[in-house]
């Protein structure tokens, strides 16, 4: 009799949410179809409706906080940049308001929203994918498709390396502080304190990389045998394959329709 925690490994890994439980590659495929539709459709209202749809989906999968945190920042940055850029490059006639003599026009705002919608429609899909898919699930799915486990390891380990390097920076800062070196204060002080830590940080990282590769070798990482997996995702059901195929067929048909609309009709 196994504990609930151990039993989870013997079963397929599921999250109890139909969208989250989609195979990562199916999910990526479906979201990419959604991401490219605003680009092909060139329809601003549709693009922003899609963004609202992403929010609904984020709430449905219980990842609203994560999605909203990143998407809001991306949306503000993109829209602000495009609004300013378009006001500088588009000559409009309908003046909305004026800032110190700089006239903001409706035409420029609409142009900014056109492009902004496409960018946000695309980036929303990608953010939603990462919000709903643990990286290790994506790597598992890729390994099943033939990606080498070395590639998979490098990608997964890179994320941990960032955390480890961050911890090393803090340790070196703390040890410098203990030696009386000023590391806090204004930006200039912080910058001056940062450069001397680069060499111990990089040398330490290189030395750890060597030891880590020995550690992986000790775990028979390079053995020429088919690997097994402790965590397994459920096999892709037929309905999911049909859904992905349907979405792709729809997308291709939509692209053809738009091309015909542009060049024939």
């Amino acid at each position: 009799m196994y504990s609930e925690f151990v039993q989870k490994f013997l079963d397929y890994q599921t999250y109890g949410n139909p969208f989250k439980d989609l195979n990562p590659l199916s999910k990526l495929n479906l979201l990419l179809v959604l991401a490219f539709i605003p680009l092909v459709a060139q329809h601003t209202v549709f693009a922003f409706c899609l963004c609202i749809g992403y929010y609904v989906l984020a709430v449905y999968i219980g990842e609203f906080k994560y999605f909203n945190g990143i998407f809001t920042k991306v949306a503000i940055t993109v829209l602000l940049f495009l609004l300013i850029l378009r006001q500088l490059t588009v000559e409009g006639t309908t003046v909305l308001f004026s800032v110190f003599g700089w006239k903001w026009t409706l035409e420029a705002v609409l142009k900014a929203l056109d492009l902004g919608g496409i960018i946000l429609g695309f980036s929303g899909a990608i953010i939603l994918f990462y919000a709903s898919t643990p990286m290790r699930d994506l790597m598992y799915a890729l390994e099943q498709k033939g990606v080498s486990h070395t590639t998979s390891y490098i990608i997964l380990a890179s994320f941990q390396t960032i955390t480890d390097l961050n911890a090393s920076v803090n340790t070196i800062f703390e040890s410098q502080k203990a030696r009386g070196i000023e590391v806090e204060g204004n930006i200039l002080t912080r910058v001056k304190a940062f450069f001397p830590i680069l060499s111990p940080l990089l040398l330490g990282a290189m030395s750890s990389a060597e030891e880590k590769s020995i550690a992986m070798d000790a775990r028979a990482f390079s053995i020429d045998t088919n690997h097994s997996f402790l965590r397994e995702l459920r096999p892709v059901p037929r309905w999911e394959k049909a859904l992905v195929l349907g979405a792709n067929v729809f997308f291709v048909a939509f692209c053809v329709f738009r091309l015909l609309q542009m060049f024939v009709f």
Binding site: Q160, T161, D164, E211, A215, R219, A220, T225, H227
Partner: peptide, 21 residues
């Protein structure tokens, strides 16, 4: 440096060598 850095629990960490085998 003997921890793989890619596993989320100790259970999975210990199982890693067996997965490779």
């Amino acid at each position: 440096t003997q921890i793989s850095g890619i596993k989320e629990t100790v259970f999975e960490e210990i199982a890693m060598g067996l997965e490779n085998l």
